[in-house]
């Protein structure tokens, strides 16, 4: 069916997409790599001498780097734990024959569609503000001193906000996987006297394992790049208490205008993301064969 003629046509149809993505990927990537070896600051115009690995040295020895790396890991792992555990619970609950299931699902999924700047600002002002936020009012009404979330526990607060945004995603994926579970298998196990816990552990969890892996990998890709939530809530502070790698690189390149340093950081971020991406790609690739 696929003649030579149609093959040529197919190539023409694919090439615009390929060329554009290739340009979008190769040009900036090679520039980032190139800049990372230059002493290049926008505030100091002039020649941009080649300095070898100097920027990388500065980047790795920057006290902010270590903090940012730890914060990035805490942020990703924290959100993953909350959303995966919560998502499994939600998926199992919503898979029951509950009344008004459609509406419940709509309400649970809604936070995912709220733009990041809105959800961050709403949590920052309406909930976490110690003076006029809901949590502050609640603390006062039972006689406690209000807690200033974003200055006392900035990273934990951001983990909370981001988890609220991503829990719906995990729930949706896991619920979809849950619905493909053979109900008869569960009933048979129940008849044989298997407790709820063993049904969960031996039937539901293994069935969900693939979806859980997908959730973890995809969320990790997105969570490594969390930016807007930090920008509008804490600006990475106090100090570097809530600075992640993405925010650190942004600050170095667009706030301190240090193109060389920011680019070195960019290269590091790309390498980190690629480690995760390799695993994800392998899973998706396997699925493509099936």
């Amino acid at each position: 069916m696929a003649t030579q003629h149609s093959k040529t046509a197919a190539r023409w149809m694919i090439s615009p997409a390929v060329i554009m993505l290739l340009a979008w990927m190769i040009i900036p990537l090679s520039l980032t790599l190139y800049f990372s070896f230059l002493r290049y600051n926008l505030l100091m115009p002039g020649t941009n001498p080649f300095v070898g690995f100097e920027n990388y040295e500065y980047f790795f020895t920057d006290p902010g780097f270590q903090a940012a790396l730890i914060n990035t890991i805490l942020l990703v792992v924290g959100v993953l734990i909350i959303t995966v555990v919560g998502g499994i619970a939600f998926a199992i609950l919503l898979d029951q024959p509950i009344k008004g299931q459609g509406i419940v699902r709509i309400l649970v999924i809604a936070p995912f569609f709220v733009m990041p700047t809105v959800s961050a600002l709403v949590w920052k002002n309406m909930f976490m503000n110690p003076v006029s936020g809901i949590f502050g009012h609640m603390a006062k009404s039972i006689g406690l001193a209000p807690f200033d979330f974003l200055s006392q526990a900035p990273l934990a607060s951001i983990i909370g906000i981001v988890s609220w945004q991503w829990l719906p995603f995990a729930t949706l994926i896991l619920l979809t996987a849950m619905q493909s579970l053979d109900q008869e298998q569960l009933e048979a196990a129940e008849m044989d006297g298997a407790s709820w816990w063993s049904r969960f552990w031996y039937i539901m969890l293994p069935h969900l394992s693939r979806a859980i892996t997908v959730v973890i990998l995809i969320q990790t890709i997105f969570l490594l790049s969390i930016f807007a939530e930090i920008l509008v809530t804490t600006n990475g502070g106090p100090g570097t208490a809530s600075t992640n790698l993405t925010y650190l690189i942004y600050a170095q390149s667009l706030l301190q205008y240090d193109v060389g340093l920011g680019s070195a950081g960019g290269v590091v971020a790309i390498i980190l993301a690629n480690i995760v991406a390799i695993f994800l790609m392998r899973m998706i690739g396997k699925n493509l064969d099936a």
Binding site: V18, P28, F227, I249, Y250, A269, A273, L280
Partner: peptide
């Protein structure tokens, strides 16, 4: 297809500087 997907895995901050300058 897989290569196209891999471009999506690129962290945006990794290409922020060149895109900004361009």
């Amino acid at each position: 297809l897989m290569w196209m997907l891999s471009t999506k895995m690129l962290p945006p901050v990794g290409v922020l500087v060149p895109i900004y300058l361009i």
